[in-house]
Design a protein around this nucleic acid. Structure first.
Lengths: 229, 229
DNA sequence: CAATATAGAGAGCACTGCTCTTGAAATGCA
DNA sequence: TGCATTTCAAGAGCAGTGCTCTCTATATTG
């Protein structure tokens, strides 16, 4: 599989484009991401980068995938280090890892969990990376010893609404628990979004310690509702 | 208080700018909101609108305030119609009203609860309108007959983290309940954001009926956790 | 070596936010 | 009422954007 000199150069330039794009995104935000600016930083003329990336939105999509993957990776690694039997800690570590990543990469977080980009249409390529964190959470639920919670039945309409998840990624998990897991995911993202997007001003004390302690408290309550204790 | 002809004209033009801005926002999204475009629709040259609005971001801020106010109004009106003693229904009506508004005004919703606009710094003028919905929710909590939940004590760090809210808008509500209320708010916004921003694909069946039923189920569980039953 | 495919440069179009200047109209004051 | 002042809208212009097209130098392939 000898790569020609041109192919190597192409890969090199491509990864530079992604790297510079990620930097611009991290520093100035998605709205300010300019193909011409990355071209300048690359020492290229703007029209040349169109040989590599078909449009600005396409570059943004690549960066979305990258963001999902980076977040997914750090979460997977952090959660894997926890004792498998300690369900509570597995959940808390997962939650805190997502939050910490969001606070240190606010623009990347906004890109994937905030408002979708204007001409957005989440392409196939994002669904895999996007589900890495949810998969970790479902893994925790799967290890639950099926307590009191597991036995209930869902309303038929709710049951069939949940079918796509229940028959796929959440296979083998009691559906009442799956539903609660989804609510927990909403609480997790909602809490982080409130904080990252500035909706906790005059609500929660602004110090990092206070913010973290409050988030921890919220997540412990969520874990309690999930039966992880 | 006789208004001069010029003052009247100014108010008229100003409200037209807001109206057209809101339309553009609703149709094409915040990223596509262009001062020049609203100037065109207004039959004006672009530089003329700068007599009324200092910048594009300023117009966006005005639209943010308007969006908060419109959402706040419909929620207040809907919740006010419910029997005061029926706490569960007051909560459910509030939640569903927010969700319905978000689904029918996705760009406005994204503007206020999605990623903040690039050069954003929530000005004083937004904090009042932004708190209308939370105030409605706190009103429901305030009418709770203080069940088992109300008596607990919070960890000191969590207690002081919660101080800004607890000593102001949530005055008179047991702090454990206030904390859970905030988590409920996060779940509410998180669930709606997941749906509006397209994160429920392949998770919850895509029909409006299924989506609504699932949201209703989630909110009933939240209400249960809040002790509204 | 010759034919082809590709990378990059350059010019150009239509659009954006925003500033500055210029002429016209409405206003306040004597 | 008549005049000075304030305000409005228009026009031109600057710097930036996404994107397309053409052209040349180079790398690859037959």
């Amino acid at each position: 599989m000898a790569k020609t000199r041109r192919e190597l150069a192409r890969e090199e330039v491509m990864s530079q484009i992604l790297e510079l794009g990620r930097e611009h995104l991290a520093v100035h935000g998605a709205a300010a991401l300019s193909l011409r600016a990355v071209a300048r930083d690359l020492g290229m003329v703007s029209s040349a980068v169109y040989r590599y990336v078909p449009s600005r939105d396409a570059l943004l999509t690549l960066l979305i995938v990258e963001a999902y993957d980076r977040l997914g990776l750090v979460v997977e690694q952090a959660e894997a280090k926890v004792d498998r039997a300690d369900l509570l800690d597995r959940f808390l570590v997962t939650a805190h890892t997502v939050r910490t990543w969001a606070l240190t990469h606010p623009y990347e977080y906004a890109l994937i969990y905030g408002s979708p980009v204007p001409g957005y249409a989440a392409p196939e390529s994002t669904i895999g990376p996007a589900s890495r964190v949810p998969v970790v959470l479902l893994g925790i639920l799967r290890d639950c010893p099926e307590p009191a919670l597991g036995r209930g039945r869902l309303d038929p309409v709710v049951h069939s609404a949940l079918a796509p998840l229940a028959t796929d990624a959440a296979d083998g998990i009691p559906e009442t628990l799956t539903a609660r897991g989804l609510a927990s995911w909403a609480t997790l993202l909602g809490s982080i979004s409130l904080e990252v997007f500035g909706h906790l001003t005059n609500v929660i004390a602004s110090g990092p310690k206070a913010r973290k302690a409050f988030f921890d408290h919220q997540m412990r309550e969520v874990a309690l509702g999930l039966g992880l204790a």
